[in-house]
């Protein structure tokens, strides 16, 4: 049985790299990514699981990193926006479709869209896209731009 008390060293696999980190068992994955690894792409928009700005992928599925303990992430593959590479179809599509304004929600949306692409390699029906993207909030755009980006992402793949 795993039992952690007080500061503990855990191994986290983030963007393909293995990191040894000292964390408290109550530390949130989001805070550890940002404060210890400097991966500030995941954003603390609400820290309550409501806005989706901190979304990352865990074993290919989206999770809100504010609702995961860092100790729970051991043994899982984590992917953040910094791990997308810089020219992934989803990133190109978001730029071309003008799918952001202030950009704060963008890493979260990118990761949900990338997760969608992983789990649904061909463009699923509109309601599936909506279901996935309803996990995230954007205050700036009209959302139409983000829908367009999803379509373009599938065309580029």
């Amino acid at each position: 049985m795993v039992r952690y008390e007080g500061k503990t060293v855990v191994n986290l696999e983030v963007n393909g790299e293995l990191h040894q980190l000292a964390v408290r068992p109550s530390d949130l994955l989001l805070d550890v990514l940002r404060e210890q690894l400097g991966l500030t792409g995941a954003k603390p928009g609400c820290k309550n699981g409501d806005c989706g700005a901190c979304t990352i992928l865990m074993d290919g599925w989206p999770v809100k990193s504010c609702l995961v303990l860092a100790v729970e992430a051991e043994g899982h593959r984590l992917l953040t926006v910094e791990g997308l590479g810089g020219n992934a179809p989803v990133q190109q599509a978001f730029v071309e479709a003008n799918a952001f304004q202030c950009g704060y929600c963008t890493p979260g949306f990118l990761m949900v869209c990338y997760g969608l692409l992983m789990q649904h390699p061909t463009l699923p029906e509109e309601y599936v896209v909506e279901e996935w993207l309803q996990s995230n909030l954007c205050r700036c755009t009209s959302y139409r731009e983000i829908r367009k980006a999803v379509k373009q992402m599938y065309q580029k793949k």
Partner: peptide
């Protein structure tokens, strides 16, 4: 951020 500490256990069996 959770301001306080707690112990984290991940048992492998129901008994544990």
């Amino acid at each position: 951020m959770i301001p306080f500490d707690f112990i984290y256990c991940r048992p492998d069996t129901m008994e544990d």
